[in-house]
Nucleic acid binder design. Structure first.
Length: 286
DNA sequence: CACGGTGCCTGCCGGC
DNA sequence: TGCCGGCAGGCACCGT
């Protein structure tokens, strides 16, 4: 499940691999891959375009194209972007971008949740403030947590704006902060010693500062270790990450908390599996 | 608007 | 051994 560190890893690799290459052909092998746009329309917009940069915005991989447009790829749960990988399982290849030099970038996605679209690159620039009903997610992404703008003061203001939301639900809201997924939200809350169900508006100043530091710590560690591969994730070269070895609480129900030794508890918050230490992360007083 | 529930998908795993 | 329900979870979508 690619989150910010995994997508960052992929984008950095691809930047060194496909920048300056010109697209000669786009092939879709899954009818919903480019939905709601037909694959032929996307193909027509990609053909002949040179990739000028590859970057990450939230959990999206962004391929900037000459002319101000960009190809955005949402990997969702099991999406992979593979370049120069030999043993690709053809059953799960949902799309392919071929280049004029004969090389190809392949999109593999077991569960078919991933999507691709060609968009106006400028729609990625906002910080969530432009959100409107029915606006696509990529056009209303929130603050980048590793950017300079993500300060303790900014986080405090966000929590004040959404005081009733459970803190974990808020961390996962891509329109608030872009890029945090279930794993890194869980790890950050554990490090900050904050219970996932705490109301955002109830956090004290010292807790907000700890959370700010913990978010950056978790994400940077994930990037440094090449992402987390508890199951499916591989980078653009087909290699697994190493962050899964460093999980403190994620998927560790029943195991001792690395900080205090108490058994880690699994629960469900916002519909997703959640892990926390019942001693380090106190239950919010009901 | 915010919030909660459901569907999308497939592989995997535990129970019988 | 084989079948089947449940689970994984990011996000769109829908109802309240």
């Amino acid at each position: 499940m690619p989150e910010l560190p995994e997508v960052e890893t992929i984008a950095r690799q691809l930047r060194g691999l496909v920048v300056d290459r010109t697209i000669s052909e786009f092939e879709s092998r899954w009818v919903r891959l480019t939905e709601p746009e037909p694959a032929e329309v996307v193909g027509a917009r990609l053909r002949g375009r040179r990739i000028s940069d590859v970057r990450r915005r939230g959990k999206f991989v962004v391929f900037d194209l000459d002319g101000g447009e960009a190809l955005v790829v949402s990997l969702r749960m099991t999406g992979k972007l593979l370049y120069g990988v030999e043993d690709v399982d053809e059953r799960y290849v949902r799309g392919e971008i071929r280049f004029e030099d004969g090389t190809a970038l392949r999109f593999s996605d077991t569960r078919k949740f991933g999507r691709m679209a060609v968009i106006d690159a400028s729609t990625l620039d906002g910080n969530g403030e432009t959100r409107r009903p029915k606006m696509p997610l990529h056009a209303s992404l929130g603050q980048e947590p590793l950017a300079r703008g993500f300060t303790v003061a900014w986080l405090r203001a966000l929590l004040r704006r959404r005081p009733r939301a459970a803190i974990k639900v808020l961390l996962l809201d891509q329109r608030a902060i872009a890029g945090i997924g279930n794993i890194y939200a869980i790890e950050a809350l554990w490090r900050a010693r904050i219970h996932p169900l705490r109301k955002a508006g109830s956090l004290r100043a010292d807790e907000i500062a700890r959370l700010h530091e913990a978010i950056r710590w978790a994400l940077r560690k994930g990037i440094r270790l090449g992402g987390a591969s508890p199951s499916d994730y591989v980078d653009a070269r087909g290699n697994k990450g190493r962050m899964q070895r460093e999980f403190q609480v994620y998927a560790r129900a029943g195991e001792p908390c690395p900080r205090c030794g108490r058994a880690i508890v699994r629960s469900v918050v916002g519909g997703r599996g959640t892990f926390h230490c019942p001693r380090c992360q106190r239950v919010p007083r009901a």
